[in-house]
């Protein structure tokens, strides 16, 4: 997996068209304000990682953007249209794969679930499922049950479920937080590869700064609560990245230090 390319092409498929946008999003539960005025634009094809000190409303923001939570104020738009519930061209991958995959369904049935309402022929659907499972490296797991697989494999299945759906936008909430380090690195590389292949716009929430800088075209740093966007940092590391080589680069180390400093100062300013 060593990348020898010295020229760093732009990430594939990027153009200026904003596909996902949050405008002045505020979310409060009763008197507890979690999100305070979040504004964020994600252009088509971009991979953004959202980081912030623990307790910042990272997951809340993601759930607002996924249409699973209604913002108290402000709007979320997908392809220019304000959303009111989970939007059609979006898929979500959650951290808790062992619960988001349905244990009474085989892997194939799980991946098929979101496709049921799509107007596709039976063979098209199953072709998509096979392709998605192959893309995540599980071509032979279709007839097994999720609980017969390892954690990393289960998360691959839930990624395959999102892929088979062919979303324009993919939201991921700490997707690799509960797998081991090696699996995590594999899954990170898988996401970079899939993003290019499937032309998706991806927003991924993580608490891991290394992961954020490694994956993202742009890292969005949130402040402590109530949460705002502290800074949006472009990551000019090119489209091809490598766990060893990229992470050893000076730019990577500097960016990581920069993000870490921001998060530290943000968590110090958090009212506890």
């Amino acid at each position: 997996m060593t990348s020898l390319s010295k020229t760093e092409p732009d990430p594939p498929g990027r153009d200026a068209r904003v596909v996902l946008s949050a405008r002045g999003v505020r979310k409060a539960f009763g008197s507890r304000v979690i999100l305070e005025d979040i504004t964020l634009d994600v252009p088509h094809g971009e991979f953004i990682c959202i980081v912030g000190p623990s307790g910042a409303g990272k997951t809340t923001l993601l759930r607002c953007m996924a249409g699973l939570l209604k913002p108290t104020a402000g709007t979320v738009t997908v392809d220019g249209a304000q959303i009111d519930g989970p939007p059609e061209p979006m898929a979500v991958v959650l951290q808790d794969y062992s619960r988001s995959l349905l244990p009474w369904m085989t892997v194939r049935a799980n991946v098929l679930l979101p496709l049921r309402r799509r107007r596709l022929s039976r063979s098209e659907k199953h072709q998509r499922i096979d392709e998605a499972l192959a893309a995540v490296g599980l071509p032979a797991a279709a007839d097994q049950y999720p609980w017969q697989l390892s954690g990393g494999m289960q998360q691959r299945v839930s990624i395959a479920r999102a892929l088979a759906y062919r979303p324009e936008i993919l939201l991921m909430d700490e997707p690799f937080a509960s797998v081991d380090a090696q699996t995590r690195a594999d899954l990170e590389d898988l996401m970079l590869e899939l993003r290019a292949r499937y032309d998706m716009t991806i927003a991924l929430v993580t608490h891991d700064i290394d992961e954020a800088v490694y994956l993202a075209d742009r890292v969005v740093v949130l402040s402590g609560s109530p949460t705002r966007v502290t800074k949006s940092i472009p990551v000019p590391l090119g489209a091809t990245r490598d766990q060893v080589e990229t992470k050893a680069r000076t730019e990577f180390v500097e960016l990581r230090g920069h993000v870490m400093t921001l998060i530290r100062s943000a968590s110090r300013s958090t009212r506890v």
Binding site: A66, G67, L68, G85, P86, E88, M90, A91, V92, L94, D96, R99, S100, L102, W104, M105, L113, P114, R116, R117, Y165
Partner: peptide
């Protein structure tokens, strides 16, 4: 999480009941 997954993929009501909630 199961309920949320069904919701985020806009699973149709009938499928949601018979394939997700009931099992």
């Amino acid at each position: 999480v199961v309920v949320e997954t069904a919701r985020s993929y806009r699973v149709r009501t009938v499928d949601r009941f018979f394939r997700i909630y009931l099992p």
